[in-house]
Amino acid sequence: MNAPIQQDTSSLNALHTTIVQLNKVILGKDTQIRLSLACLLARGHLLIEDVPGVGKTTLAQSLAHTLGLSYHRIQFTSDLLPADVIGVSIFDRNDSSFHFHKGPIFAQLVLADEVNRASPKAQSALLEAMEEHQVTADAHTYVLPAPFFVIATQNPTYQIGTYPLPESQLDRFLMRIELGYPDATHERQLLSGQDRREFLHTLGATLTLQQLLTLQNQVQQVHVSPALLDYIQALVRYTRSSTKFVAGLSPRAALALLRAAQSWALMQGHIGVLPEDVQAVLTAVIGHRLVPANDTALNKPTDIGHYVLKSVAVP
C-alpha cells in the first residue's frame, strides 16, 4: 500500500486559526463559519438566506479579510444590469478601439448582496459566471481569478420586491445556510463590544493563497470508503422514492454532497469521510435542492435536512 497522502498540517493549522479569528468577529455562529469554509474548500459557492441585519455581509467581509482574498461587493438592486456585474467595453479615443473594463465580478471573493432583488437578467449573468468561471464579452473570454468564490445573500422570498432565484439555478450554490438571530449571550456581547466591522480591519490574513489552494486540493483526496458511498446513495435514493418531495436529488446534488462532506472531514481532521461528516453538511447541501410536496409539513430547508437524515439508516 502507498503511504497516505501527506497531510499538510501547516495549512490545516492555519485553517483552524482562521476559524478562531472568524469566531471573534461573528459571534456564536461557529457552525455557519465552518460550513462557509467547507464550501470554499470544496470550490463551491455559498448562498446565505436570512432577514437583513444578522451579519451576512460581515461574514463575507471577514472571510475575505482573513483569507487574504481580493474582494468585491455587488449590491444587487432592481435596476442592476448584467454589465454592472461582468464589466463593459468602452471606446478609447486615443487608439480608436474598445477596451474591456472588468466589472466587480473579477475578484477572488465576490459578495452578491441581496441577489434576489435584481432582475433575472442580472442574476443569470452572475450565475453563468459562477458556473463557467469565466466571462464572455464582445466575443472575448476573460477568465476569472482563482480561487473564485461567490457568496450570495438573499432575503427571505416572502419579502416584497424580490425576484426569487429559479429552482434550476439554485443548485449552482453548493450550500445554502441561514445565520439566524444570535442568542442572548452573544447578542449582549455584540451590544457591549466594539463595532464588529471596525474590529474586522484589525484582523490580518491568516491563510495564504497557497495554503488555500493546497487545502482545496486536499479536499479531493480525502478518502471515501465504499461504506460511505452506500450511505450517500441511500440518502439520494430515499429522496427519490419518498413522496414527500416533488423530485429527488440529482446526481449532481449527490456529487455536491460528497464534495462538501469531504471538505468537512478535512476540517475535522478525520481519517476519511464519516457518516457524521455527511450529516453535518446535509441540510446546507440539500435544503435548497429539494422541493417538498405540498401536502407535507416540511416547509423549511432545515426541516427537510432533518427529515431526510432521520429517515435513512447509516449502513
Binding site: 500500500m1 478518502h223 461504506a227 476519511g272
Partner: peptide, 9 residues
C-alpha cells in the same frame, strides 16, 4: 472501527 470502515489504509 472508523479507520477500518471509513479510512484508507
Amino acid at each position: 472501527y472508523v479507520a477500518l470502515r471509513y479510512g484508507l489504509n
